[in-house]
Simulated scan of single mutants.
Amino acid sequence: MSDTSIGAPARILPVVDRDSEAYWTWGRDGKLAIHRCQDCAYYIHPPVPFCPKCESRAVVPEAVSGRGRVVTFTINHKQWVPRLPERYVLALVAIEEQDDVRLPCNIIGCDAADVSFDMPVEVFFEQQEDVWIPLFRPVVQS
């Protein structure tokens, strides 16, 4: 679930702070971290130190399955920076555990034309310096 390939596209890296640290670093261990309220069990993303549902401050990161589905997507056709492909998919993926948690991401591991709404996907991490960027790829059907 991790890729440290040298040929990875150039990316503008996120600012990692106390709230977002788990989201950007747990990929080192192949885990997708999403904050969860310990009082009402609501998942919260982007990560913040309180629950927007019950207003509890008992919020901690937890590993989720890393599976989800493509809610919406667009195909980019312009190379904005060097090493960035000319054609790539930007998507919102709903995590399996809670449908209203939507992660903006890239879909990799398939041709852009093969991406579809509700496509089942799984997380895959790309390491850039000390950040593990969650990307998603199609789930291989067995």
Rank of each mutant, 00 (worst) to 15 (best):
A63C: 08
P138D: 05
P61C: 04
R28Y: 00
R137A: 06
K78I: 15
P61W: 03
L90T: 15
E126S: 09
Q128T: 10
H35M: 02
E126I: 05
D17P: 08
D114Q: 14
E86V: 11
R11S: 11
C37T: 05
V131D: 13
V71I: 04
F125A: 00
I12M: 12
R57S: 14
R28F: 01
Q38S: 10
S142M: 08
V48P: 06
P9S: 15
P85T: 11
Q141H: 10
A33V: 05
D100M: 02
R67G: 11
F124M: 06
E86L: 05
V121I: 08
G27Q: 01
A113E: 12
E129P: 03
L13S: 09
G30N: 07
A58G: 04
A33M: 03
D39F: 09
T25L: 07
V71C: 04
F125R: 02
A91C: 03
Y23R: 07
E96D: 15
Y23G: 08
A41M: 07
R83H: 12
Q98F: 12
V70S: 03
N106C: 03
D130E: 15
N106L: 03
P120I: 12
F136Q: 02
V139M: 10
T72E: 04
V93K: 03
G7F: 04
I44G: 01
T74A: 10
W132Q: 10
P104S: 05
S5D: 13
F73H: 05
E86K: 14
V64L: 10
I6L: 14
I75H: 14
D39H: 07
V121M: 05
F73E: 01
C105Y: 03
P120F: 09
Q127D: 04
R36C: 11
D3W: 07
S142F: 11
V101K: 00
Q98V: 12
C37R: 05
G27P: 01
R28H: 06
D3K: 09
R67N: 13
Q38L: 13
P134S: 05
R18T: 15
E62N: 08
F117R: 13
C37E: 05
V59P: 03
K31W: 01
D100W: 02
I133C: 02
Q98A: 07
D19H: 08
